[in-house]
């Protein structure tokens, strides 16, 4: 047996206690920061929240009135972004993971996706402004929900592609081979085995993307137009809640109204995250029957 010096044992134990204390403090700090922000925003904003606030149009640049158009704008924008980005993103992930042979082109594509994810959102906004708002202005309506949505699509595609690929990759090769060995086509195997098992992960990726769009400001500042009017078509300008918060705070200085918007935004994101977790669990149960 190796001889252990008595001091050594004490030292090892002390190190362990120290390490776990620091780790638990770090974890506690994260929760505290989150709580502090949520409580602060809520306490500042809750006083202005009412039915009128949620359902009225803003007056005096948002210093008074409600935030209804921003809520509608957010829903339109998120809906349109997901409608365009989800099929493209999931489709790309399926192609990359299930069809495309390994090789240089695939590595380049993966690397490009990583890079796209790393581009700061204000740069996406600049690109969206020059390309979708100005160059394609005749088709997108200039500053509009459509221009904003297309910019948002470019921004969140990498998120959906990467997370969906992860989900697809986690489907065991044994099951795929089991299906193919029964004389089924690749597409049938993807439809019946791979996609059902990957659906929970794919859904999560899409909900993460929704969260990103809701929270984004910079990319939409330059593309959405920031209109205070209620949008009726995708060619109208609009503003999202996050954008509204920014513009109200910067242009009117009414922090109360800004915090009210912030509170609504936080609640919305909380609901989406809870829904995502719930949906994930539901889908896992549904498909692993």
């Amino acid at each position: 047996m190796v001889e252990v010096k008595p001091n050594h044992l004490i030292k090892v134990k002390r190190n362990q206690v120290f390490a776990f204390t620091m780790l638990s403090l770090a974890a506690a700090l994260t929760v505290l920061i989150l709580l502090a922000i949520v409580i602060y925003v809520m306490s500042q904003g809750l006083s202005v929240i009412s039915m009128e606030f949620l359902l009225d149009s803003p007056k005096s640049m948002g210093a008074e009135g409600g935030i209804y158009p921003a809520i509608v704008g957010t829903i339109y924008l998120v809906g349109l972004v997901i409608l365009i980005a989800a099929p493209i993103g999931v489709g790309t992930a399926i192609y990359l993971n299930e069809y495309m042979p390994d090789g240089r082109f695939k590595s380049v594509l993966r690397f490009a996706t990583e890079l796209l994810a790393a581009i700061p959102s204000i740069v996406h906004g600049m690109f969206g402004f020059l390309f979708f708002v100005i160059a394609l202005g005749d088709y997108t309506g200039g500053w509009s929900i459509l221009s904003g949505a297309l910019t948002g699509v470019v921004m969140i595609l990498p998120i959906i592609i990467r997370a969906s690929e992860e989900a697809l990759r986690s489907v065991s090769n044994n099951l795929k081979e089991g299906s193919l060995a029964l004389g089924t086509t690749r597409w049938y195997t993807i439809k019946k085995i791979v996609l059902p098992l990957a659906i929970p992960g794919i859904t999560t990726s899409i909900i993460l993307a929704i969260g990103r769009v809701i929270g984004e400001t910079a990319a939409f500042l330059l593309t959405l137009g920031g209109s205070l009017l209620l949008a009726t078509t995708v060619f109208d300008g609009a503003r999202t809640l996050a954008l509204h918060l920014y513009l109200v705070a910067m242009e009117t200085g009414n922090t109360e109204m800004a915090f009210g918007t912030g509170a609504v935004l936080i609640v919305l994101i909380l609901i989406i995250n809870l829904a995502a977790t719930g949906l994930f669990k539901l889908l896992v149960r549904r498909f692993s029957a």
Partner: peptide, 18 residues
């Protein structure tokens, strides 16, 4: 696809679909 239909495989590790 036709070939695999007439030549089936049982794998080393049981792989029932979930």
């Amino acid at each position: 696809v036709q070939l695999r239909k007439s030549v089936g495989t049982v794998f080393q590790k049981p792989n029932p679909f979930p």
